[in-house]
Amino acid sequence: MRADAEDSDEELLRAHTAGDPDAFAEIVRRHRDRLWAVALRTLGDREDAADAVQDALLSAYRSAGRFRGDSAVTTWLHRIVVNACLDRVRRRQARPTVPLPETWAVPAAPAPDRDVALDVRSALAQLSADQRAALVLVDIHGYGVSEAAEILGVAEGTVKSRCARGRAKLAVMLGYLRVPPGHQPGNPASGGRVPSGSLPGDSTEDVS
């Protein structure tokens, strides 16, 4: 059995498990841009995203025989990629970068002009990884709540709650919503679009 560009994802995955050397590469070719976009927006870092996608697709390559067909291949791939991203977030928090010696000093590049998209990306980066992943799937990539729940491995109510709470925080950070001092996420006095600092109440106790 040889991979064919007209084969469905499921057919290609079966061909891969049957030993077709080209089948998995065709699956990757079809979905890599979308998987890359999800990873990049979930992690907010190019190299982390590249690592996560590589780890995830290697895992998928090796575990393809365990794919039961309960979901679409693309959903399965997204689930593996998103899990790899969330895993990297956790590991990144556990491993600080070692400061480089002084002699390595390199002048910092001038900051590029800020724009709305950059503000949104910066604000997204301040959300919890779980809320960010939910918003990336639902609001940025247009997945339905049920499919996002399947990808994330949580209940639909949890996805809804993460999205709702994430949007509320973004609304404040982006200046669309004002809340009384003392409860405004970030910098309450700035009035700017993206205050710095972590958000209070960035709870993971979502409604499910």
């Binding site: 927006r41 949104v120 918003l135 609001d139 247009g142 973004l170 669309y176």
Partner: peptide
């Protein structure tokens, strides 16, 4: 506010 956020996120997408 939530609607504005959804628009921003959709634009990003």
């Amino acid at each position: 506010a939530e609607r504005a956020v959804r628009v921003d996120l959709a634009d990003l997408g």
